[in-house]
Amino acid sequence: MPIVSMFFGIIVRMYADDHNSPHMHVEYQGSKAVYSLDGELLSGELPRKQHRLVQAWAAIHEEELQASWEVCHEGEQPMRIEPLR
């Protein structure tokens, strides 16, 4: 389960054998959610503050997330992406 980024207790992952459309899996203290690469919540739920942090981070790194998704689905490890600070 490759980790793409971690910030403020939030863990973002991408899976090589995952289905389309491009998305990321996000966890925070037992809460789980799936987001599109532009930060749209697709399923699950995070606390409001963490949801907003994920949306902001995704907006900043959307191009890198797309590149990571493509690399991941070519059988390689997804790229690490800079966390929020």
Results as ranks from 00 to 15, higher is better:
Met1Asn: 07
Pro2Ser: 08
Val4Asp: 03
Val4Lys: 00
Ser5Ala: 06
Phe7Ser: 14
Ile10Arg: 01
Ile10Met: 06
Ile11Cys: 06
Ile11Lys: 15
Arg13Met: 05
Tyr15Phe: 09
Tyr15Val: 04
Asp17Thr: 14
Asp17Phe: 00
Asp18Pro: 01
His19Thr: 12
Asn20Ala: 13
Asn20Trp: 08
Ser21Cys: 09
Ser21Glu: 14
Ser21Phe: 14
Pro22Arg: 04
Pro22Gln: 08
Pro22Lys: 04
His23Tyr: 02
Met24Thr: 09
His25Thr: 08
Val26Leu: 00
Val26Arg: 04
Val26Gln: 10
Glu27Cys: 08
Gln29Leu: 14
Gln29Ser: 13
Gly30His: 14
Gly30Arg: 10
Ser31Glu: 11
Lys32His: 07
Lys32Thr: 12
Ala33Glu: 12
Ala33Tyr: 11
Val34Arg: 10
Val34Asn: 10
Val34Gly: 01
Tyr35Ala: 00
Ser36Glu: 12
Ser36Met: 08
Ser36Lys: 06
Leu37Tyr: 14
Asp38Leu: 05
Asp38Ile: 10
Leu42Ile: 15
Gly44Phe: 13
Pro47Cys: 03
Pro47Thr: 07
Pro47Gly: 05
His51Val: 05
Arg52Tyr: 06
Leu53Ser: 12
Val54Gly: 09
Ala56His: 07
Ala56Pro: 01
Trp57Lys: 01
Trp57Pro: 11
Trp57Glu: 08
Ile60Ala: 08
Glu62Thr: 12
Glu63Gln: 14
Glu63Gly: 05
Glu64Ala: 14
Gln66Ile: 14
Gln66Ser: 10
Ala67Lys: 15
Ser68Leu: 01
Trp69Glu: 05
Glu70Asp: 14
Val71Asp: 13
Cys72Trp: 01
Glu74Phe: 01
Glu74Arg: 15
Gly75Arg: 10
Glu76Pro: 02
Gln77Gly: 05
Pro78Ile: 00
Met79Lys: 12
Glu82Val: 10
Pro83Asp: 04
Pro83Gln: 07
Leu84Ser: 15
Leu84Val: 03
Leu84Pro: 06
Arg85Pro: 14
Arg85His: 13
